[in-house]
Nucleic acid binder design. Structure first.
Lengths: 232, 232
DNA sequence: ATCGCAATGATTGTCGACAAAAGCATGAAT
DNA sequence: ATTCATGCTTTTGTCGACAATCATTGCGAT
């Protein structure tokens, strides 16, 4: 029984209300418009996003199974609030999964994709040097880099778990932490070395460098938290 | 801002229709009652599981975001069908994530949990020796072992992703593959060595052994597929 | 005979109303 | 004064009907 891979392709254009609701709520949670720990009623959400309860409930179910909010029957929904420890655990998961992604990306990315990835880093560099984009780099540029590697792994489930589950939770804290300091420069250098390894098709090295990169990011946040510079 | 970890606790007892629908559909997919690739209408599902469309749709949304079925707007839902390649990719993800789980379990499991884990393996051994439980061991016993290690990692998100996302997809194929041969004995030996490493609190070794264990399982399936012994 | 178009049928997406459960406040009893 | 019970209010869970969209089938034209 041969199965066509493309059968499980991504959903096409027709956006349904439930999809809109899902996107709205997701960005609202990530950007902090809906604060962690905040308990919020369905009717209030309907009014806020101009929706009816049907699509809204469907979106809430999806958000719940992705771990962005918790729902207690008959008691309402609440945005998840992850502790500092749990954030560290997220980084440990990223270390393992993105290491794999980097290794597979080194084996499977096309030459074109690698060139695009290098071009992306170039634009990041100019942004940092012009000193007006540190926040942007930290927030979106970094996400962009990891996004490309996740999809470049050609591992659909891996990309789905990374992009659909983990990154949203991490980005949720990027918004309020906006950790900068001297990391952007170091992070860019680490990114460059990872891409180099990928360009040389050295999967093992790419995996190692990616793991070390994420481990460094984790330690950076951990340090700031223990110094009291960051509240979570 | 101190956040109470227990805030994101598991849902309590009150089961709602949507939860029932979710469980029903999930087991139906895993056991193969709903065949992969099968296109199925909402009203048919309602009749089959004695539900109304409201809770059903909510369950469908959850199943979709977990990757167990795909939904094209206005065109119905379809059970996912993963190719042989995609199954191999799942094992690669497991290798990375369960390696991490084993390492953290070695660092964090209680002595009681480790004793329980060893007892579990003992019961598996008697089951295999009595030769009447190979299929059971392969199907449920193995799942039991990995389940305990995932929760023993004390990494809530990791356990959620492993138990909620990956295992269901793997179990879905366990049912129809029922791969046995001489693996059960070897697998049990590998399990024992992993637990030994955990009992000695040797996280690195536990991680290495777990990765090798899953890698061996993957190669075993890969071999059978290329030999034409297994259809997917 | 085959291809394209249109109308019909079926299925999904959406909406509003009803019912059930939980939370809260008030009041009474210890 | 504190605690428990009871009623009310609010919110969630559920249901059935309506509207929008897609798939199919039949007809006509080339």
């Amino acid at each position: 029984m041969i199965v066509d891979k493309s059968m499980n392709a991504v959903a096409p254009q027709p956006l349904t209300r439930a999809d809109e609701a899902f996107d709205c709520l997701q960005t609202a949670i990530v950007t902090g418009d809906l604060a962690p720990g905040e308990k919020i009623g369905e009717v209030e959400l309907c009014a806020r996003f101009k929706l009816t309860r049907g699509p809204l409930r469907e979106a809430l179910g999806r958000l719940e199974s992705r771990g962005l909010l918790v729902r207690r029957p008959h008691a309402g929904v609440k945005v998840v609030s992850v502790s500092a420890d749990e954030l560290m655990e997220l980084y440990r998961i990223r270390e393992a999964m993105e290491g794999l992604a980097a290794r597979q990306a080194a084996e499977r990315m096309t030459d074109q994709e690698i060139a695009d990835l290098q071009a992306t880093l170039d634009s990041h560099e100019t942004m940092i040097e012009e000193a007006r984009g540190q926040a942007y780099y930290q927030a979106e540029g970094d996400y962009d880099f990891h996004h490309r590697i996740a999809t470049g792994s050609r591992n659909a489930k891996l990309a789905q778990m990374l992009l659909g589950d983990l990154y949203y939770m991490v980005r949720m804290y990027r918004y309020r932490l906006s950790t900068s300091s001297g990391r952007p420069h170091r992070a860019l250098g680490e990114h460059r070395r990872i891409v180099e390894a990928i360009a040389q098709r050295d999967g093992e090295l790419a995996e190692f460098l990616m793991q070390r990169h994420i481990n460094a990011a984790r330690k950076n946040i951990e340090q700031k938290i223990s110094d009291g510079l960051l509240d979570i």
